[in-house]
Write a protein that binds this DNA or RNA. Structure first.
Lengths: 217, 217
DNA sequence: TACGTGCTATATGTATACAAAATACATGGA
DNA sequence: TCCATGTATTTTGTATACATATAGCACGTA
């Protein structure tokens, strides 16, 4: 089920929004740089209408800033922005951890732990990119296990805004090692279904993320 | 400062977004109902382009749902939606309370307490509408005092989604009395700059809000 | 040379026109 | 009568055209 024989239900502006979102997250469109409408619609092969609608969506998501009559730019995060996002994210994920311990099924917990094991395998072989992607997924999946849709949505939103930054975070080997240790703690607490402990682990993990990241801003 | 002599910098889609947002919040556009594009652009005196851009913004904010090729509807909150929002909001405001105690200036605290006093005056004379508005402002201002812009933004977003619902909340007299008691607790903790206590008060206030509201869904 | 002024080019904002899809309706057959 | 199919009408989606605002530049003046 799911995809089956669905053709192309998504409207153009949805597709454009996804595409441009990716361009921003992966850094092809640099933070602070102007978004050249004429150039991008050429590239994407669409007209201005769906493109501009997509921009409005991304603006509401906080990835883009529209300056009336002066064009749009990719939002550039100040250190204060990043700090405030990590502060909030830490508390959201604390909540997610607590709720997940109460609400997730055993199968869901097992799945998440399996993902963790694969992450650890990547760490041992120092494959940064796969590790990075699995890490994003780990946090997103934990938010899902809270069975709280609003929490999942907010977590996803902040995580998207921070994606660029966090990739930089684990550049230094000992930072990476630290993050891995944090994750071991989380999984242990999750296995035991110790909500408060997992919550603490999440919050502390994100506090440390700030330490790991702040110098590269 | 602020307004000074600025003429009209806001673009049409911004104005339309604000206008329609208000129509949704105040209930003129009913939850679950179709948004009649042709009719509304006539009413607002704008063309479809800025109107549709505004719709995309509201969709990203979670107030509107766009169903591809089938038009847009005002999002109708299920009880689960409301519960999940209040759960998250409770924890966000707990954080806001803790941070505000640490970071707000004495003057800011005094201002907020003054607002509280005015709210109480409205309660004594049973002026529901002014009370309701000041209450919204109270929570928004507390979020500001956290000096965390992300927190302020997320709080505002969830509060906007819930506005309709919460107006219903204090219909019953004893519910209203309960909310007032909660607020007295908050202000006491704020006066003492007791962060953990204020945090607890906020979280508990929003848990009770669910109790107050759930039957009218 | 430095600054201000007005013009031109370009980019942005909005309206309209055209295309495609969905819905409502009517007609015909079982 | 009920359902199916085809057609008309309405609504939504996208492209383009037009209007307006901004920014860059050349020129003139102090």
């Amino acid at each position: 089920m799911g995809s089956s024989l669905a053709i192309t239900n998504r409207s153009l502006h949805d597709q454009v929004a996804s595409r441009v979102r990716d361009l921003i997250i992966e850094g092809t469109l640099e933070p602070g740089s102007r978004i050249d409408e004429a150039h991008l619609i050429e590239e994407l092969g669409v007209s201005r209408t769906p493109f501009r609608e997509a921009l409005r969506t991304l603006a509401a998501e906080g990835l883009v800033i529209v300056r009336p009559s002066k064009g749009s730019i990719v939002r550039k995060l100040t250190p204060e922005d990043v700090f405030s996002m990590l502060e909030v994210l830490g508390h959201l994920e604390r909540l997610a951890g607590e709720l997940a311990c109460e609400r997730a099924t055993d199968a869901e917990v097992a799945d998440l732990i399996a993902l963790h094991e694969r992450m650890m395998a990547c760490y041992r072989t120092r494959e940064r990119m796969p590790y990075y992607k699995m890490n994003q997924e780990f946090h997103a999946r934990l938010a899902e296990l809270s069975k709280n849709e609003t929490l999942r949505e907010m977590q996803a939103n902040i995580q998207a805004r921070l994606k660029r930054i966090r990739y930089i975070g684990n550049q230094k080997p000992d930072s990476w090692a630290g993050a891995v240790a944090d994750h071991e703690d989380m999984v242990r607490a999750l296995k035991d279904r110790d909500g408060p402990l997992l919550g603490e682990a999440m919050a502390s993990h994100l506090k440390k993320t700030w330490e790991r990241v702040k110098d590269s801003l």
